[in-house]
């Protein structure tokens, strides 16, 4: 009985993470992107906490706490603050249209499912589907990074990719170094955020659009 609930709840959390990934994908405004990302991080935190409870692995609570505090609350606030401080243009500048991107995202989910389900026939059902969802989230995060021009959105894409990794890591029973991994990634992201702020790309280039950096470097062709 318990296992069915464990199954359903972890699926609910995983599906929420994936859904939030799609929400990130179709947002046209930066603030919306941040909110969707916050939702995703909270869902990851919930998934980690539930796994910690159901696997009886207390260290996963740490992962959940990190996801909740750093990525669910601190990172969106920091992003908002950066956008306000640097007065960044608040629309998402897309390289590929929203519609095709969504279609590509759906394709990636199909690919991930096709890949993971046959490979892991022997493992427990719980692990299999969580892994499929996590791989989809990773691929969609990657997709966000390459279809958006704005540096801030690329950072969000990277963080969302990392959410997928954490989701995969907490879903597998007995995976070592999960906590360390999430700490390391959080630190990395923190540094990227600080970097954006301190380098004040805005001041030098008047925009966070990477195209400007390229033209400054003289590499635009």
């Amino acid at each position: 009985m318990f296992s069915t609930i464990a199954y359903d709840l972890s699926h609910l959390a995983g599906a929420t993470v994936l859904l939030a990934g799609f929400v990130v994908l179709y947002q046209r405004r930066l603030l919306g992107v941040f909110r969707a990302f916050a939702l995703q991080s909270l869902a990851v935190a919930a998934a980690a906490a539930w796994q910690a409870y159901s696997q009886d692995a207390p260290h996963l609570y740490v992962t959940a706490a990190i996801a909740f505090l750093l990525k669910g609350i601190a990172a969106p606030i920091a992003l908002n603050w950066i956008v306000r401080r640097l007065d960044i243009h608040r629309t998402v500048e897309t390289a590929v249209g929203i519609g095709p991107t969504m279609l590509a995202g759906v394709g990636l989910v199909v690919l991930a499912t096709l890949l993971v389900l046959p490979v892991t026939v022997s493992s427990a059902a719980l692990t299999r589907e969580t892994l499929a969802i996590a791989l989809s989230v990773v691929l969609i995060g990657f997709l966000v990074m390459i279809t958006r021009r704005n540096a801030i959105t690329q950072v969000v894409g990277f963080m969302s990719l990392e959410n997928g990794l954490v989701l995969a890591a907490v879903g597998v029973k007995g995976m070592p170094l999960v906590v360390e991994m999430s700490v390391a990634f959080s630190l990395l992201i923190a540094f990227i955020l600080f970097g954006i702020f301190f380098f004040r790309i805005r001041e030098r280039f008047d925009t966070l659009d990477l195209q400007s950096i390229e033209s400054f470097r003289g590499e635009r062709r």
């Binding site: 390289a95 690919l111 991930a112 096709l114 021009r149 690329q154 195209q211």
Partner: peptide
């Protein structure tokens, strides 16, 4: 540009995954 490099990596990754699939 960074985005294009990432796109290349992404394309390579997806191609390999497709081959595996």
């Amino acid at each position: 540009s960074i985005r294009r490099y990432l796109s290349l990596m992404f394309a390579a990754l997806v191609t390999l995954l497709l081959i595996v699939a």
